[in-house]
Design a protein around this nucleic acid. Structure first.
Lengths: 224, 224
DNA sequence: TGCGTCATTATGTCTAGACATAATATGAGG
DNA sequence: CCTCATATTATGTCTAGACATAATGACGCA
């Protein structure tokens, strides 16, 4: 086994098991180097990885300490719906309801509305705006056939996004599109996507509450 | 500026801006070392960080390549409610409704129910089970005065968790506790917490849909 | 043409040593 | 007893070189 990996894993295990408690002092790099019979740089690398993972905190002169557990945070995966539903083993279908260009003075945007179906039943309604200035190729895409999310995933590299998740009651028209009663509890997911400082797309997805839930995992000191 | 940091930031900028596209080849370590006038180990460290962040992919012999953007994932912060509400500038209060021990053959658990108030109005109801086998100190804690989440955050180091988020309609009793009409859309958050393979606590929080939303951010190639 | 072998090559890891940096601990002076 | 300057110390970063590892591509053989 790699010395660096061994040091990292052994310390991580001690922290995760609770043997070393938050605030405890971790031996100095020199100590560990001597104990494991390797160079200080190797120990340093191992500790740097642990620090990057958030398991330890390092302060010059003071030393390395077991970190205090972070505020609960978790990694939520917001998958492409086509993929998600296929993974569930259900048939997926996208049905566009409206596609129109919204021209303005200098920029124009694409406005898309439609419904995602899983196993023949509506799962979510989607309202999306795509900035053609940032994604000119979207003007030629056929969003009647391919869901915009799926298309964008394949065509837009490396963006940042902000999600807001709420529970809302379905309005009358939304409920009709989702084939549920008016006022039914739905999960609303809004996502703004940017490249640098410029908006790329904005989407609002309204999920039938009885057919969808989000899962988020948090593994102590591991980065997905 | 650090050479390593400079290399890392310049390459990250090129990728994020779209100048280098997914699949593009990144210059070899030797090239970069020559270009930046530093040792190969320094370049290697910079590239290793970019790989850890997911911005590039490295393959022996083949080289380093700009990674393909991942499935949309985002880091969701599920903060302690007391902190969250204080940060909003509202008054926070926890009101326990029931605290009882549930003894079994070999282990016993603490069952807690209560309501979180923000600005005097109910925000969420909480139902929690704490495994006393894993958290013996919880037997002596005063959960009438301190919300269990707040207490646990301070007493339990380094756990893993799994969250499931859904939109549900409030049942009659839940709606009464939240001071909303029956059937109102609420955000349900269930969290199972573990240390290693052993369960520590399970909690279900039901948020008033009109007073709470979850925010999750995704920054291209930056780790939470 | 097809296939297996081998040299090449880029990354992966490590070493021993050096200097930088920042924060703590110490000691001198008030 | 307090304050400020200084020495110490642990981490942070870097270098130059070495060997390991794995995958590719070219070569030779059938």
């Amino acid at each position: 086994m790699n010395p660096a990996r061994r040091i990292r894993d052994e310390i991580a295990a001690a922290i995760r098991s609770g043997e070393w408690r938050p605030g405890d002092r971790v031996p100095t790099e020199q100590d560990l180097a001597a104990r494991y019979g390797c160079a200080r740089a190797t120990v340093s690398k191992a500790l740097a990885e642990l620090a990057a993972a958030g398991l330890v905190e390092r302060r010059r002169k003071a030393g390395t300490f077991v970190a205090h557990p972070p505020v609960h945070s978790a990694v939520m995966t917001v998958p492409d719906l086509a993929e998600l539903i296929a993974a569930r083993g259900e048939a997926y279908r996208w049905e566009a309801r409206a596609i129109e260009r919204v021209p303005a003075k200098k920029a124009s945007a694409l406005h898309i509305e439609g419904v995602h179906f899983a196993a023949g039943e509506p799962l979510a309604i989607e309202t999306r705006i795509i900035e053609l200035a940032e994604v000119p190729a979207a003007a030629d895409a056929d969003f009647a056939a391919v869901a915009p999310g799926t298309w964008l995933l394949a065509h837009i590299p490396w963006t940042s996004a902000r999600h807001v998740i709420r529970a809302v009651a379905a309005a009358r028209a939304e409920a009709a599109a989702l084939a549920v009663a008016g006022g039914t509890a739905c999960l609303e997911l809004k996502r703004d996507t940017w490249r640098g400082a410029r908006p790329v797309t904005h989407v609002r997805q309204l999920f039938r509450g009885d057919r969808f839930d989000l899962v988020a995992e948090f593994q102590a000191g591991s980065r997905p």
